[in-house]
Every structure is written in C-alpha cells, then in structure tokens.
Simulated assay, not measured.
Amino acid sequence: MNEANIIRTGRAVLHVKDLEKARDFYIDSLGFIETESTETELYLRGLEEHNHHSLLLKEKNVAAVEVMSYKVYAESDLDVLHEQLTQEGLKPIWVEKGEQHAIGRTLRVQDHSGLPIEYYAEMDVVDRLLQRYDLYKGARVQRIDHFNNMVQDVEEAYGFYTEKLGFACSEYTATDEERIWAAWLHRKPSVHDVAFMNGVGPRLHHVGFWLSEPLALIHACDVLAAKGYAPSIERGPGRHGLSNAFFLYVRDPDGHRIELYNGDYLTSDPDFKPVRWSINDPMRGTFWGHEAPDSWFNEASIVLDVTTSQPVETKKPTIKQGKPQFVI
C-alpha cells in the first residue's frame, strides 16, 4: 500500500470557556490575525499563512483539545490513510465537506497514544499578510509550527509515527538504558511537526507557532506585561538545547500552553542523523541553564475522544524494560 503524503502540522482546534477573553489574548496581545468569527467560534491565522486558519477556538463549558490536524498533499492521501489506519486496528471516521467551516473532507482518528488527530487536504485560501507590516503587533505570529504531546509510551508513539506515517526523527532524549524518553519528529524540513514527551497522557502540552525573529518574543513579553498578562508568561525567553530554538511559553486564559518559537534548523537532507541528548544533560531543555517551572512538567491540556467528544482517560507514563524496540 502506498504511503500517504503528510505535508506538515495544519491546525489546532481548542475549546475555551470565554471567547472574548481568548480574543484579547490571542489577537490583541499575541498578534494573531482574525480570519472570521461567530458568537461561538474564532478562526485565527498567522501573518504568513494563506490558509483560512491554523487555530480554531470554540467556546465550550470545559477547556479541552478537540483535535490536532495535519495537512496532506491530496484528497487521495486521505483514502490511503483511512485504509492504513483501519488496518492498524484504529477506527478512523470521516467528517464530510460542509460539516466544518472553511475546510474540506477530513479524517479523524484516535491514534495509538489516545490523541485526537485529524487529516485534511483542502482549506479555504485567504490573503497572505506577510508584508502587511501595518498589521504586525504583539508577537507578530507568522505560522503554526508543531504540536508537543505528553504520552504514556513515547516509544510506541515513535514507532507508529516513523514506521507507519513516514515521520523522521531530528532529535531525541534517551535514558542511560537507551530508552526513548522524548522524540522530535518531522514531515516538513524543520526540527519537528510533533514531539512526544514521557508524562501523564495523552495530553497536549503545547502548540508551537513560528515567529520571524527572537525580538518578536521579547516584544511579546512587553505587550503581555503591559496588558496585565505577566502571570501568563510561564517559561522563557530562552534557548533550547534540543532544536536550538529561541522560545517563550505562555498560558492562555484557559491554561492552554502556546510556545512562541524561532530559530531551529533545516532537516531535509536524507543523510541527516538524529541528535541524541542524555536525559541527564541540563542543557537539553534550556541551553542557558535556567530550570523550567514545575507547571511546565506537570500541567497540560486534556484531549477529547473524536467519536464521543468526552475527555480521554490519562495514565501514568511507562518506560519499557529491556532492549529498545526501535533504532534511531
């Protein structure tokens, strides 16, 4: 069977409890562009993006993650994925064109880790605002970049995404016994479209958005502080050892974590070898040495079942014993 051509991270659909508070945070403070909105939905994109949205906020009673989406090359890739996921023992479901606004037919599935995943090929095209510098404000968000998820079994997630879905590994963290503690996987030629970290899961740790320069992160801090959101700045600014990226982590009014991200590197060469980090190396998380707060390790967003829309049960992480199952 042919392998589906997954292009990149596409969009996140998050549930928030107060859409107006979310609007103030995402648009007025971080600088997202509002494509359109209703009384209960807010469609956002970055300045560089030509698709209708990369972040959809829905007003609900409970803050949660409805789905994390990947864009595929063509409609036929969705059919390939449906067959492949079914053969894997999963239960993908179709959401037909017209059932969701501004996006074509999608395929949703609960992956092996219990994460709600969506694939799509078609989304409405809008004006790219890259050179509308008069609209730049806040963090001047350019585009969606990646998801980071906490899962019970990182090695299982690693195996499924690399062996079945064609993702490649750029960097990873290993224990002294060479267990995979965390892995950064990509389809586009950057460090990652998705990362998996050992932790209570399945949960979404954060959605990463690409910025044009490190100074945009600094300006975002100034704007957030001036607007009363200083407590929302959770970690950074700083530089990761893993990925080499300049980062800032912020929490929206509902606790969803957003990473503002800049400065990783090209991974397109076929002979690129994944970078190994020891779990005992303090520079892997923060190259400059300062520690992350406990909340960064312990808190994350709950995810929903794609069929029932109910929260997915979380479990404590497990590190398998014995020899590694996968060769990096």
Rank of each mutant, 00 (worst) to 15 (best):
M1F: 12
N2D: 14
A4W: 02
I7P: 00
R8F: 02
G10I: 01
R11T: 10
V13I: 13
L14E: 02
H15E: 09
H15R: 13
D18L: 06
L30N: 00
E36M: 10
L44K: 04
R45M: 08
G46R: 00
L47H: 12
E48V: 04
E49F: 02
H53G: 06
S54C: 15
L56Y: 01
L57E: 05
K60M: 15
V62Y: 07
E66F: 01
V67A: 05
S69F: 07
K71G: 07
V72L: 12
Y73W: 15
L78T: 04
D79K: 09
Q87C: 03
L90N: 01
K91N: 15
V95N: 02
E96P: 01
E96Y: 13
G98R: 01
H101W: 09
A102F: 15
G104L: 05
T106I: 07
D111K: 04
S113Q: 12
G114R: 00
P116H: 04
E122S: 10
Y133T: 15
Y133M: 13
L135Y: 03
L135Q: 10
R140L: 02
R140S: 04
Q142Y: 01
D145T: 09
F147Q: 07
N149G: 05
N149W: 07
V151M: 07
Q152G: 07
E155W: 02
E156M: 15
A157H: 00
Y158D: 13
G159C: 07
T162A: 04
C169L: 09
Y172A: 04
Y172Q: 12
A174N: 08
A174T: 12
E178Q: 14
E178P: 03
A182S: 13
L185P: 01
L185W: 03
K188F: 09
H192V: 04
V194C: 06
V194Y: 00
V200C: 05
G201D: 08
L204Y: 06
H205L: 06
W210A: 04
L211I: 09
S212E: 11
E213T: 13
A216M: 09
A216R: 12
I218E: 14
I218F: 15
I218Q: 15
V223S: 03
L224E: 01
G228I: 10
G228P: 02
S232L: 13
S232G: 05
G236F: 11
G236A: 14
G241L: 10
L242C: 14
N244D: 12
L248R: 10
D254C: 08
H256Q: 01
H256G: 04
R257I: 03
L260N: 02
Y261R: 01
Y261G: 00
G263W: 10
G263T: 03
G263S: 02
Y265W: 13
L266M: 12
D269L: 12
D269F: 08
D269T: 14
P270E: 09
P270N: 06
F272M: 04
F272I: 10
P274W: 06
V275M: 15
R276I: 11
W277V: 07
S278G: 12
D281Y: 13
G289H: 14
G289W: 08
P293T: 07
W296I: 11
W296F: 14
F297P: 13
N298D: 13
I302D: 07
L304F: 05
V306H: 00
T308V: 06
P311T: 01
E313F: 05
T314D: 05
K316W: 14
P317D: 08
T318G: 13
I319F: 07
G322I: 10
F326I: 09
V327W: 07
